[in-house]
Amino acid sequence: MRTRGWSHWLYLAPALLVLGSYLVYPTLVTLYLSFFDARSAQYIGLQNYARIFTQEETLIALRNNLLWIIVVPALTVSLGLLMAVVFDRVRHEALAKSAIFLPMAISFVGAGVIWKFVYAYTPPIYPQIGILNAIRTALGFDPIGWLIRSPWVNNLALMAVFIWIWAGYCMIILSAAYKGIHRDLLDAARTDGANEWEIFWHVALPMLRPTILVVATTMTVFTLKVFDIIYVLTNGNFGTEVLADRMYKEMFHFHNFGAASAIAVIILLAMLPVIVINVRRFYAKEGR
């Protein structure tokens, strides 16, 4: 279709209006506010940022975000990969996949309630109603506060919820890619006497690499945005806070818009590599 004057702007206008006023403009304002005090009245330079890197609460949040980024995408993608490959070999594949995929339809809040109950604690003299502590006591151990013990037990307990939700997503995408690999290729390797492990490691995995990268990137983005799970399960207590929850607290509990904005900018900066990768990949493909 040839261009016909300006009519394309009619199609673009609603989108540009919304994107401009709801995403671009606020982003610039937030950047600006991050250099001001709690009430956005006085310019204070980099003080909000300095506080993020010196104050204990935000340092813990930074540490936890880092912990999440290291542990969660790796575990979620590996589990998804394992499922994609193993489920391919059983008869009721679709059914099994649905079971794993199901949590994706559930909200983080719903999942939070589900898992809060899994981690439930009652004092040792009473029967345990949370399944994890029931297993512990059945094995002769004392029940523990899964969401209390810091920093490993409770943070891993929270990560487990995320993994429970998102492993299905990774599985679906990796499974599609795995099924896209030519069967002949795998069979040829089998006739050459390679065992299943070697086939997976030397044939399938290299071919899946691009997909794994995409999925891992997506998981990293979601990990950085994680808020609800922590909000529902621990509210950031006991050393479990992450940046998104800290920002919410600064904004709504302490009404410190400067500090909250600075935290938002840090989250954005952490995501910047992903944004750059996306834009570059787009440019490589389309930009002529």
């Binding site: 604690y121 009652t122 004092p123 040792p124 523990i144 506060g145 969401l147 209390i148 013990r149 006991f238």
Partner: peptide
């Protein structure tokens, strides 16, 4: 339940 109980309950 000790401190862990107090914090969990």
């Amino acid at each position: 339940g000790g401190p862990e109980g107090a914090l969990s309950i």
